[in-house]
Design a protein around this nucleic acid. Structure first.
Length: 588
RNA sequence: GGUUCCAUAGCUCAACUGGAUAGAGCAACUGCCUUCUAAGCAGUAGGUUCCAGGUUCGAGUCCUGGUGGAAUCACCA
């Protein structure tokens, strides 16, 4: 309908004002709810062409368009705003087309191959709320792109080596007495995380003692036995010391098992895992090649750098004097490996905005090195999740643990459901599934409804809502629709002579807007667009539901139309819910 | 100190990328279950969009300056 409307406006300009405008420059907006109509054309920008007052110009174009398009019922003019209303028959036919559509929403004109890297955890501690946001964002972005028709590869780059990993290994060796997940009953990632914290405690204690014995803080740091032992361990690891590798493998495998459980509960997944231990050396060759080609330069001490001063940035170290690599080196190598593996058009990194500078530099260096895929590298920079007192800090215990949070959501969902007392006849298994669906649904919606680029301040003392603009509200609406549809098994026919209620028309017009929202969500990599749309869908449906009787409407054609509206709504809720990773309950 | 980002109702968030009288939810208040699920619906109240200028038919949105906050500027990742 939008293309036809634009075309008619172009024609009106041509015949009424003898002026040529292109279809592309015509903008059609959704009519503000407080005015009559569905689509709006703003004439202000064209007054120079029409050389008439806004109202008069709009009037002329409106008349011409109504002549041209039979679907247009009427138009009204408020100042420079030209609002079009469509005939109810058009909306009924549109709804009918949706009931028969194979899928909701159009697909991309030019499908691409897109890689989405997300999660990217360290193997020295369990996941926290920050990771949860990352996981849900990454997964949802991947789902949205895939639904829009792109080929998507979800990958996880695991940070499984380095001094921080050695810290937990060392503490485990010293203090654990052979404790295992089995012997302690502690989930693997939490067990390893416990020793990461213990290292920090012991290290701080050691420093304090050294300072008390008369050392300066710097001296204490330099002579700390624990820290030196950790560094020593990292050296052994890099040299491939068997005993160290065995410990490393044992602990990491516990962590992976723990992560698997958390990922699976969150409902996120990956096609491929990259591990830093397998990629950290790859960047070296790229750097050496860059040096040889004169793109990079070497300092007197032998270290190798990229000079980015022409681009308004600093110099960036890429290889230390001793030839070991840094974070950037590894990321260069990984970027190259990813492209060699998949040859994707776009490579999205879902990483917090604290790394904006890093990714700016990464892309720039890839460009300088002449990598063609550099232009496809995109940092999906999202806002950090913070506590009221600031950033989360694992070592100080100031974290909202992912597993704990999911447990709490489950318990709250159980409590709320029991308060409602509407689940008679459900088995224990079904109840368990329902609490999980509701608890995680609330959590997912809570995190995804917010614009990804904005930071989230999470207050653990305020529980996540189950009322209002929440995942629960959407799930409730879904269950409500299902309850109606359970009482209907016949096929549907649509009567185009029906006269619609405003709530019915509003809901269909809203469903009409899905294409634009899906496209926008893809363009911005923003699940919040879908979440917002999903909320509005439920909102419009509930308005309609409260105002109109469905199965007991006055006549058969009205009943069938309203059942059809319910059927399409349920499909939209399910589709969008899936894009956010949310499950929907049949009853609640 | 340099660079980048942010500031909207008491709180949490929107505002279709420059459009109409800035909208939702929570919290408060008022109605609505003999009817397909009231985890809902309808309504009341709540705003100098941080401040001061500028751009134009029109600014929460763009530009300049200021205030307040955050991130980053590692031979950490």
């Amino acid at each position: 309908m939008i293309p036809q409307l634009k075309q008619a406006i172009v024609k009106a300009f041509s015949t009424e004002f003898d002026h040529t405008v292109s279809v592309e420059e015509i903008k059609i907006e959704n009519t503000n709810p407080q005015f009559e109509g569905s689509f709006t054309f703003v004439v202000f920008p064209y007054l120079r062409v029409t050389r008439k007052k806004p109202e008069e110009s709009a009037e002329i174009i409106g008349n011409a368009v109504v002549q041209e398009l039979t679907e247009i019922k009427d138009f009204n003019v408020v100042k420079g705003f030209l609002n079009f209303s469509l005939k109810d028959a058009y909306w009924v036919e549109y709804l009918e087309s949706l009931t028969q559509a194979k899928r909701l929403g159009t697909t991309a004109d030019k499908p691409q191959k897109v890689m989405v890297e997300y999660s990217s955890p360290n193997t020295n501690k369990p996941l926290h709320l920050g990771h949860v946001r990352n996981n849900l964002l990454g997964f949802s972005i991947a789902e949205i792109l895939e639904y829009y028709g792109h080929e998507v590869i979800k990958v996880n780059l695991i940070n499984d080596r380095g001094i921080h990993i050695c810290k937990s290994m060392l503490a485990y060796q010293k203090f654990a007495n052979g404790e295992t997940p089995e012997s302690s009953g502690i989930k693997g990632d939490h067990l390893v995380g416990k020793y990461y914290v213990e290292f920090d405690i012991a290290h701080k204690k050691e420093l304090a003692e050294l300072v008390a014995s008369g050392m300066s803080e710097d001296e204490a740091k330099a002579s700390s036995t624990l820290m030196n032992e950790a560094r020593e361990m990292l050296g052994k690891w890099e040299k491939g010391d068997e005993e160290t590798l065995a410990l490393w493998n044992k602990l990491n495998n516990w962590v992976y098992k723990g992560f698997d459980a958390s990922y699976s509960r969150m409902g996120v997944s990956f096609e491929k895992f990259y591990k830093e231990s397998e990629t950290y050396l790859l960047g070296k060759k790229m750097v050496m090649d860059g040096l040889e080609a004169g793109i990079l330069f070497q300092k007197e001490d032998g270290s190798i750098w990229a000079d980015l001063t022409d681009d308004g940035l600093d110099q960036k170290l890429l290889l230390r004097a001793d030839g070991t690599s840094v974070y950037m080196t590894q990321d260069l190598g990984t970027a190259d490996l990813k492209y060699a593996d998949y040859g994707m058009d776009t490579s999205i990194y879902v990483v917090g905005n604290e790394q904006d500078y890093h990714f700016k530099v990464l892309r720039l260096i890839l460009e300088k090195l002449g990598k063609t895929y550099a232009s496809g590298v995109f940092h999906m920079s999202y806002g950090m999740v913070e506590l009221p007192e600031g950033k989360m800090k694992t070592r100080e215990g100031k974290v909202v643990d992912a597993d704990d949070l999911m447990d709490e959501m489950y318990e709250t969902a159980k409590l709320r459901t029991m308060e409602q007392g509407k689940t008679d006849g459900l088995s224990d298994d079904e109840l368990h599934g329902l609490y999980e669906t509701l608890g995680l649904g609330a959590l997912k919606y809570f995190l995804l409804k917010v614009d990804p680029t904005k930071r989230i301040v999470f207050n653990p003392s305020e529980t996540i809502d189950f009322q209002g603009n929440t995942g629960t509200f959407i799930q409730y609406t879904y269950a409500r629709c299902k309850s109606v549809l359970r009482n209907w098994s016949d096929s549907l026919t649509f009567d185009t002579s029906l006269e619609l209620e405003p709530t019915e028309r509003d809901l269909i017009a809203h469903l009409f807007g899905f294409d634009a929202k899906l496209e926008e969500a893809c363009k911005l990599y923003s699940p919040s667009i879908i979440a917002q749309y999903l909320y509005d869908t439920a909102k419009f449906y509930n308005s309609f539901y409260n105002q109109c009787s469905i199965l007991k409407a006055e006549n058969q054609s009205l009943i069938q139309f309203r059942v059809g509206l319910t059927a399409v709504t349920v499909r939209m809720l399910e589709t969008c819910g899936k894009l956010l990773g949310m499950q929907m309950p049949e009853k609640m």
